[in-house]
Design a protein around this nucleic acid. Structure first.
Lengths: 236, 236
DNA sequence: GAGTGGTCTAGACCACGCA
DNA sequence: GCGTGGTCTAGACCACTCG
């Protein structure tokens, strides 16, 4: 059986999406949910916490759990969650043009970046990511062969994130991200259909497994007009 | 008495900073912490969860709670937490040049942005933020007078965030953020010592109180060479 | 198999909002 | 004052890592 809090969170998310709570603007009380679902308070509170983390809902002590109708109307990439670009655009055409796919051995610089030994085998994947055939990002990514034994062009054209999770069964722990603005270099600009020196949003991702081992590092140049990011941070 | 989990988290953070766990690379086990502090498992686990949220530590089932030594060596602004620019640079000189400070009435556009009625009174504060006298960001911020009854130039030169929390006693709930790259306009560029059309990292902040009411909205242009952001997202 | 963190139960009392 | 979500107690059992 799936964890009860996750199941409950999904059910509540569906009910929210169906507009079931639109009139009052808030969820039933914890006690009501406990009764409705025959769940314990632990499960109910954890489910609500998951929704709150995702920004779908915000609990106010003494008052109730309010649905955030206003949130993220736009066309944003999420920073707070990580599900791959494909996961960010459900129902839209996400494609990739593979510029490079190679298996190399880490030199000193790369070994430091990948937290591995010099000489360890590393996949390098360079792709242009497109959404509905519009260029979104020019991505350079490295994957430790220790964890990702095989990649071919077909896989690289799809979702490497989904491949790692669903086909390889890797368990993701957390992702470090560094974000900054900068000027596009000639290669990035050409791929994105922009000009050298125009703005880019640069994102450096380091993805770790649940055991704390880094398995993927990416350097991504986002198209400054086609990509914007959203995140919500709680101050609890 | 402060909440036990927060107290405990602070004590653990101090011990981590003191390098007390550097040899093993991980915290004592939950059971050991329970005994050391005479705390319950609830408090211990919650304290660890707070540290994990902040990225200071990552728990691995069956193995222990590892200290993240590697993390954020650089000079980053945090996205995951919100404590004002002053809070991001402890021990450094944070100053502001106030370009505009006025009390105005919301027109239709502003009322929509501030989730308030047309005609409601709103403070507008335009500032250049500097760290060690280097320009960091050009910020345009609005505050609802309903929650922030008074601002003067002296206050605006300091930390409005600290003023709202410590002096006005406002309780922050959460912050929505939209991040994108763009081209500086002439005003921003002049203030930041850059040129029009050069890159900027734009951050739009909406800050909400614990009761879900928006009290502050900001539009910030960050210097693309002096500002970079860090965040860590767990995939639990 | 021993030890670790993760999930869960079944309660109690507290702090805050709202009427 | 009542109803709400927040904090906390004191346990039990499960899932995973590692020797």
């Amino acid at each position: 059986m799936a964890q009860s809090r996750r199941r409950l969170a999904e059910q509540l998310r569906a009910r929210i999406a169906a507009g079931e709570f639109a009139d009052k603007g808030k969820l039933p009380t914890e006690d009501q949910l406990i009764e409705e679902y025959g769940a314990t308070r632990y499960a109910v509170r954890n489910a609500i916490a998951l929704l709150a983390e995702a920004g779908d809902v915000f609990p106010v002590r003494g008052s109730g759990v309010f649905v955030r109708e206003d949130r993220g109307d736009g066309d944003y990439l999420s920073i707070g969650t990580t599900r791959g670009i494909s996961g960010e655009y459900p129902g839209r055409k996400v494609s990739s043009v593979v510029y490079e796919l190679s298996l190399l051995r880490a030199d000193e610089t790369l070994s430091r970046r990948m937290h591995c030994q010099e000489g360890d085998q590393v996949w390098k994947v360079v792709r242009l990511r497109l959404v509905d055939d519009e260029p979104l990002a020019y991505e350079t990514a490295w994957y430790l062969k220790e964890f990702v034994p095989f990649i071919n062009e077909q896989i690289a054209e799809g979702s490497l994130f989904g491949y790692a999770r669903n086909d390889l069964g890797l368990n993701f722990g957390y992702v470090d991200k560094v974000i900054r603005a900068g000027e596009l270099n000639a290669v990035e600009a050409k791929a994105l259909g922009l000009k050298k020196g125009q703005p880019a949003l640069y994102l450096d991702d380091d993805s770790f497994l649940t055991n704390g081992r880094l398995f993927n590092s990416s350097h991504i140049a986002y198209h400054y007009r086609n990509a914007r990011f959203f995140t919500m941070t709680s101050m609890k």
